[in-house]
């Protein structure tokens, strides 16, 4: 080999080696997510991040889907299926779209699994407390006593053959606020998958749904929000490639009156905010609607019964934060959850 050839070869090798060491630049594949945020859906902030197949059309379709679910399920929309069902309480069956009937059946399933700790007919109570709205107040005991008999999921029937549902007693109210956001997460993920998306992470007001893991080949890393009053950020990290993560916590929405704090997760049996010794419950599951309902149920049930409920459901896992800052997880999360905040103590399952 001639001297000049040898030199050129040497330069070429050096250049190649140095290029390989360079950090991933803007042309590297993939470069990061394309993210869109909306603040006018489901009374919360929705953040959609697509790591492939992102387009204006797809983002619009995903947001439109969430808006359509809100239109059908919200108790605050006069024409929604749920509002019509509530308006007809105690009277005849109300014809409802198949999607609303399906979510009602899902809610009844979760109510049965949790022995009523989650109850879609809790609407008479949530309307009284109105926590999270300007009308929020602590109801009188007499008002709660009058509302409690109206919380009864046995009085909600869904008739698939007739395409309708019925609340059998006047004054009853269905409120799907406990799972509608979760269902919207499932639907956006389904639509994105149908559009060819392989890696995505969606945040619907704190409900997280993910698919495909991070494009770098590792699972998604989901921070679990610190539930201590005045706390900021997250207290632990969960790893998950596909599925849903939903938290129910006493810190989310609350009313302060006469020095007391009343949070928004009501116990269907007492009519008061659930007082089970927990600050938050985070549920991991393949289906976001069910994860949403289960997290509410576990929060109401408390640590022992909540853990037992998740243990009975294949694929369901959870992180429970107790009021004394101890953290408990289901055995399936071993190695997938790590504590990052020294203010908490992880109790090994």
């Amino acid at each position: 080999m001639s001297k000049s050839l040898r030199l050129r070869a040497l330069c070429l090798v050096l250049c190649a080696a140095l290029t390989a060491c360079a950090p991933a630049g803007p042309t590297a594949e993939p470069t990061g997510p394309e993210t869109r945020v909306r603040d006018n859906l489901m009374n919360t902030v929705v953040t959609l991040s697509l790591y492939d197949h992102a387009s204006d059309g797809l983002f619009a379709a995903l947001f439109d889907r969430i808006a359509a679910i809100e239109d059908g399920m919200s108790v605050h929309r006069a024409g929604s299926g749920i509002s019509r069902l509530n308006a007809g309480a105690g009277a005849d069956s109300v014809p409802l779209p198949s999607e609303v009937r399906a979510l009602l059946r899902e809610a009844l399933d979760i109510a049965a699994l949790s022995k009523g700790a989650f109850d879609p007919t809790v609407g008479a109570l949530t309307a009284l407390w109105a926590i999270g709205t300007p009308e929020a107040r602590v109801p009188a005991q007499s008002e709660l006593d009058a509302a409690l008999p109206l919380v009864d999921c046995a009085a909600l029937t869904v008739d698939e053959a007739a395409g309708s549902a019925r609340l059998s007693r006047p004054g009853m109210r269905v409120d799907l606020g406990g799972i509608a956001k979760g269902y919207a997460g499932d639907e956006t993920l389904r639509l994105a998958r149908e559009a060819g998306v392989e890696h995505a992470i969606f945040n619907l007001g704190g409900n997280i749904v993910v698919m495909g893991g991070n494009p770098d080949g590792t699972p998604w890393r989901i921070g679990v929000r610190t539930p201590l009053p005045g706390g900021e950020g997250y207290m632990g990290v969960l790893e998950l490639s596909d599925g849903a993560v939903v938290t129910s916590g006493s810190y989310e929405r609350y009313l302060e009156q006469d020095g007391a704090r009343y949070h928004h997760i009501l116990d269907p049996k007492t009519g008061y905010p659930a007082d089970s010794g927990l600050l938050s419950v985070t549920v991991v599951y393949g289906n976001s609607a069910r994860a949403d309902g289960l997290s509410t149920a576990c929060f109401v049930l408390g640590l022992e019964e909540g853990l037992a409920l998740l243990t009975d459901i294949p694929g369901a896992e959870g992180v429970f934060v107790a009021a004394d800052s101890r953290v408990f997880t289901t055995p399936g999360l071993s190695g997938l959850f790590r504590l990052t905040d020294p203010a908490y103590t992880l109790v090994t399952p």
Binding site: I222, R225, P227, Y234, V245, T282, T340
Partner: peptide, 11 residues
């Protein structure tokens, strides 16, 4: 361009 410690926060 850097991936943070977490990709999202639940709750």
């Amino acid at each position: 361009g850097e991936r943070g410690e977490v990709d999202a926060v639940v709750g």
